[in-house]
Nucleic acid binder design. Structure first.
Length: 564
RNA sequence: GGGGGUGUAGCUCAGUUGGUUAGAGCAGAGCACUCAUAAUGCUUUGGUCGGGGGUUCAAGUCCCUCCGCCCCUACCA
């Protein structure tokens, strides 16, 4: 594992609307924790994300809001960006797929694919709404199902009988945008990517993805084994990356084609902003380790479609080395639903509780092996026990007692004993676990190891009883408290990847703001640090406020406490 | 319908290539301590590992089958 640099991306949140906690836990938050870990370890790493700006839903939402699509996306992008800042997501760049850079790249990929012979032109029949002055994507056509007579059937699928269909089959079709029935069938030309001929390249590539989870690999091979179908990569829309070919005026690339390219586009935005070298991440495959984070529904796009685009270009591009996929976070076992307003949205979450509470809870309960269920009581339990009781109380008891007995200074004198050796051995082992789990993107296990470190501090104090020892042997008490204090410095740094705001508070208390963003490599050196005239402040208020029963009752009243 | 995933103590989850009495945290019970946010530490009660069948000296761990949930995907008359 000696890569010069690391590239981290998380699935691009769609521009339309505020995302819910399920979106956060399945992509951006774990990516942030992982990127922070690598950064703190001193690795060269960039974490890139962006909003996925294109597509019909954005157009329609803009229309409803009385804004141009551009204005709407500008606003929505800023809204989302602010929320993510609230969660301390430390993107190196949070870009947009509607950037100039992405447009140029998307057109570039298409041109290269064409040169390599992987682009084909086909004619197709699509429904055109004369009153809306636009072609209607399948799911924006409603009508009567030709199979069962259900009147609210959509152009892609009938909710009445579950059958799939072509929108041209619908009886009495109408636009679900305007309700207009003034609809006609028009002939339209589109570009297709010939995945059917790219399967060899994709398969050979997949064979080399040794770090993929068995899940990601299985999904990839399944698609390949069934045979890839050519896919249309253009649409008759105004909003999107224009297709720069004769005869394609008024057409744009389909979102699934330009969205993943947005990872590269956003890296270019980053490069322009910072003076960084985007090519060192995307054009030097052997030097870079690339990790993608996403939810399980997104895996096939990242194992097949996007790699096919990259490989089919005939150029050298960095492809993904590890895909970390998540299951769903559910709300009391039911689905989070944007349309039905079920569950908790990210903007609201930040109003209710501090970002660190969400970050820790969501990582401790990350849906890694199966869907996991959010409940308010569970969150209260985790936060109050782990953050407030175990971590918060360690800080409080240690700093208050030391301040009282040693006048706000880190105690001097005293000698290292067997008790400290034992403490060192135990905490070193826990740190090794923590490192390993973070490096492997096993977030539940990582949080468990972190918590064990917090517990270790309390155990040490409980066993050594500095409050009793102090009465007979002040020097011994000094050693215990200094060791515990040094350990607090360690804990603060190791916790930063998940609870950065709390770490900031802690480091302010112990006057170690300069340690922000650093990691712990040598536990022995840390624990044996001398007093060095260090000072600190006793906390005036508790570090972690508990979540009260009344709050839980209120939240359950507001958001509901059962599955949808 | 096909493929993949998942079902382990009341709850949330670990369980390496099958091998001693199935583990952790929370919740419950008991004890210790009093520095601390009635906090902490220690001890401890809970499981026929979704059901059934099979292979094996030995299966939560492999095979078959059935049931529940999740994701992807495909549909015939």
């Amino acid at each position: 594992m000696s890569y010069k640099r690391h590239l981290v991306t998380s699935a691009l949140p769609y521009i339309n609307g505020v995302k819910h906690l399920g979106n956060l836990v399945g992509s951006m938050l774990p990516a942030d924790v992982y990127a922070r870990f690598l950064r703190q370890k001193g690795e060269e790493v960039i974490y890139i994300c962006a909003t996925d700006d294109h597509g019909t839903p954005a157009e329609i939402a803009a229309h409803k809001a009385g804004l141009s699509v551009k204005e709407f996306c500008d606003q929505s992008h800023e809204t989302q960006k602010e929320i993510y800042e609230g969660f301390a997501l430390k993107f190196d760049h949070f870009g947009r797929t509607s950037s100039q850079q992405n447009a140029a790249l998307t057109q570039h990929f298409c041109a290269k694919l064409k040169e390599e012979g992987f682009i084909e032109e086909k004619s197709d029949q699509q429904l055109y709404s004369i009153d809306d002055e636009r072609y209607l994507p399948d799911r924006y056509v409603e009508g009567t199902c030709p199979h069962c007579g259900f009147e609210g059937a959509r152009g892609d699928e009938c909710e009445g009988c579950g059958k799939q269909m072509e929108p041209t089959e619908l009886l009495n079709p109408r636009s679900s945008i305007s309700g207009s029935t003034n609809i006609e069938v028009r002939e339209t030309r589109h570009l297709y990517i010939k995945l059917s001929e790219l399967d060899g390249r994709v398969r050979d590539w997949l064979d080399t993805r040794h770090d993929f989870s068995s899940l990601a690999r299985a999904i990839g091979y399944k698609w390949l084994d069934e045979g890839l179908h050519d896919r249309c990569i253009t649409r008759d829309l105004k909003w999107g990356v224009s297709v720069d070919q004769p005869g394609y005026e008024g057409k744009v690339f389909y979102v699934w084609f330009d969205a993943p390219i947005g990872y590269i586009g956003a890296t270019q935005e980053w490069a322009e902003k910072t003076g960084g070298d985007w090519e060192s991440f995307w054009k030097k495959p052997e030097e870079v380790y690339y990790t993608q984070f996403m939810a399980k529904d997104n895996v096939s796009f990242h194992t097949i479609n996007f790699p096919a685009t990259q490989l089919g270009s005939g150029e050298t591009w960095k492809t993904v080395d590890n895909i970390k996929a998540f299951n769903w976070l559910t709300y009391y076992g039911g689905k989070f639903s944007t349309s039905r307003n079920h569950g908790i949205f990210t903007d609201k979450a930040l109003e209710l509780l501090p970002a660190d509470y969400w970050r820790y809870y969501l990582m401790a309960r990350a849906p890694e092996s199966d869907d996991s269920s959010f409940t308010w009581a569970d969150m209260q339990g985790v936060i109050n026990k782990d953050l407030a009781d175990v971590l918060g109380n360690y800080v409080n008891r240690l700093l208050k007692f030391t301040a009282k007995k040693f006048d706000g200074k880190v105690p001097e004198a005293g000698t290292w004993s067997a008790a400290e050796d034992k403490f060192l051995t135990e905490t070193s082992a826990l740190l090794a676990d923590y490192n390993k789990h973070l490096a492997n993107c096993e977030f539940r296990k990582a949080m468990s190891a972190l918590r064990a470190l917090w517990v270790a501090g309390n155990q040490y104090l409980a066993e050594q009883e500095p409050w009793s020892v102090f009465k007979e042997d002040e020097a011994r008490a000094a050693t215990i408290l200094r060791t515990a204090f040094n350990f607090l410095s360690v804990i603060a740094r190791l916790s930063e990847v998940v609870i950065p705001f709390t770490t900031e508070k802690l480091q302010a208390l112990i006057h170690e703001q300069d340690k922000q963003g650093t990691w712990v490599t040598d536990m022995e050196a840390e624990l044996k640090r001398e007093a060095e005239d260090r000072t600190f402040e006793a906390p005036s208020d508790v570090l972690i406020q508990k979540i009260e029963d009344e709050q839980i009752a209120e939240f359950e009243g507001t958001f509901g406490s059962e599955a949808a």
